[in-house]
């Protein structure tokens, strides 16, 4: 009886977990379905029939593709800078001993604990007070994105780095590698998966951000801002195509990474 109830308990929790997971995917299924919807009326959120038109005429809605382009450009640039600065910080915080380490930790954690609306308003207050009210646009968005990506990069790279045995680096030094060689031949390849994960996370955070961007964008329009505007005018079904593509690409990248790390583990 006891084993039976335990068996039921085991299955029950798994079923519950899978149900929650299913709930998390329901909106995604809707997005994928709607990307193939033939729009009947102004409100594209009623399924009328299957079509590939939305996929073939992606750029038809005004500003959709230009906003996508802006988002990708900002995403790549912010990822590059945030990953570089964040990786350096992570190395300093794990591999170096200095005064004020715990305040450095707090300093990195705080931006993650700040609501987006507060971070966005602070930046806007700074830009406006510094006389940049008219210059809000691509570069102010870039500055903001680097800022909120930075902490996530530090945390991700730190997690990878603190799991590495420092004796590997010491061994390299013992074998007469200088600091530069030790870094590029030993530390960097070992930490690389962490850096890659951090970069992917940065890009998706940047690409998806709305609240902070909206406050600091001036006349610039990113993809989330396009979606926001479209909600007021009537939603073009092409938005769901972009959602579907993003989901598929991200899933592929994550699964490839997973396979890669399995293969490495098997070796």
């Amino acid at each position: 009886m006891n084993t039976f109830s335990r068996w039921v308990g085991d299955r029950l929790i798994l079923v519950l977990g899978l149900l929650v997971l299913l709930y998390m995917f329901v909106p995604i299924f809707v997005v994928i379905l709607m990307s193939f919807n033939a729009p009947g009326s102004r409100n594209s959120y009623t399924f009328n029939g299957f079509t590939l038109d939305n996929w073939l005429n992606l750029c038809e809605p005004y500003q959709l593709c230009s906003s996508l382009r802006t988002s990708i450009e900002i995403g790549l640039l912010a990822t590059l800078v945030a990953t570089l600065l964040g990786t350096l910080m992570a190395f300093a915080m794990v591999r170096h001993r200095f005064r004020g380490r715990s305040s450095a930790n707090l300093f990195v954690f705080l931006p993650m604990a700040t609501p987006e609306i507060v971070m966005g308003s602070s930046l806007l207050a700074l830009f406006v007070n510094a006389g940049f009210a008219g210059a809000l646009g691509f570069w102010t968005i870039f500055v903001a994105h680097v800022l909120f990506c930075l902490s996530f990069v530090v945390v991700t790279v730190k997690a990878r780095l603190s799991g590495l045995d420092p004796r590997l680096e010491q061994a390299a030094a013992d074998l007469y590698a200088n600091e530069w060689q030790t870094f590029w031949r030993v530390s960097f390849p070992l930490v690389f998966p962490g850096i890659l994960a951090a970069a992917l996370l940065s890009f998706s955070l940047s690409f998806d951000d709305f609240i902070i961007t909206n406050l600091n964008a001036g006349q610039e329009v990113t993809f989330p801002m396009f979606v926001w505007g479209a909600n007021q005018r009537g939603i073009p079904p092409q938005i769901n195509v972009v959602g579907t593509v993003m989901f598929t690409v991200a899933l592929l990248v994550v699964l490839l990474g997973e396979m890669g790390s399995r293969r490495r583990a098997a070796r």
Binding site: M24, F25, P27, I28, V30, V31, M34, Y45, S204, F207, D208, F210, F223, P224, V227, W228, N231, I235, I239, N240, V242, G243, T244, M246, F247, V249, A250, L251, V254
Partner: peptide
């Protein structure tokens, strides 16, 4: 994590 990667706004519209 996967649903996370479809835009926040697109998911909310969904």
């Amino acid at each position: 994590i996967a649903p996370f990667f479809t835009s926040f706004l697109v998911r909310t519209l969904s």
